[in-house]
């Protein structure tokens, strides 16, 4: 299972990469494996305000649908529209080509609640 050391994580299996005042968000290798073949992704609209631990996107397999939660509160400033046409990227490259969206965070303190790689590994 690939759990990169340089990322942060949530209990709900999102990964978070801090880049200045924004965070990039995707789902972990563990999550994509559990979901199995991703067939469809619904991304939030750019400009939408999201709240920490509230649903921001949906990932769907043939027989299931999974809510993807915003790891921090803020505004959606970027979405990876490539996964809309090629949802398989979420499976093949969860940390790179299959990332989902970026949030401009509104409360820096919330970053402190995220899990380090080792803690996330213990969780799964």
């Amino acid at each position: 299972m690939n759990i990169p050391q340089d990322l942060l994580y949530t209990k709900t299996h999102e990964w978070v990469k801090i880049e200045g005042n924004k965070v990039k968000v995707g789902i972990t290798d563990f999550a994509q494996h559990e979901i199995t073949d991703v067939v469809h992704v619904e991304l939030p609209e750019i400009g939408r305000d999201v709240k920490k631990e509230h649903p921001a996107a949906v990932i769907e397999s043939v027989k299931s649908a999974f809510d993807i939660y915003a790891p921090v509160s803020g505004k959606i400033i970027e979405t990876n529209n490539k996964v809309l046409g090629s949802p398989e990227l979420v499976n093949s490259s969860p940390y790179e080509k299959g990332y989902l969206f970026a949030i401009e965070f509104s409360n820096e303190k919330e970053l402190g609640d995220l899990l380090k790689a080792d803690d996330y590994k213990k969780l799964i």
């Binding site: 469809h40 769907e60 397999s61 043939v62 027989k63 299931s64 649908a65």
Partner: peptide, 10 residues
Amino acid sequence: TLQSREQHIR
């Protein structure tokens, strides 16, 4: 197909 829209899943 596109079944994840439907009641038996969602």
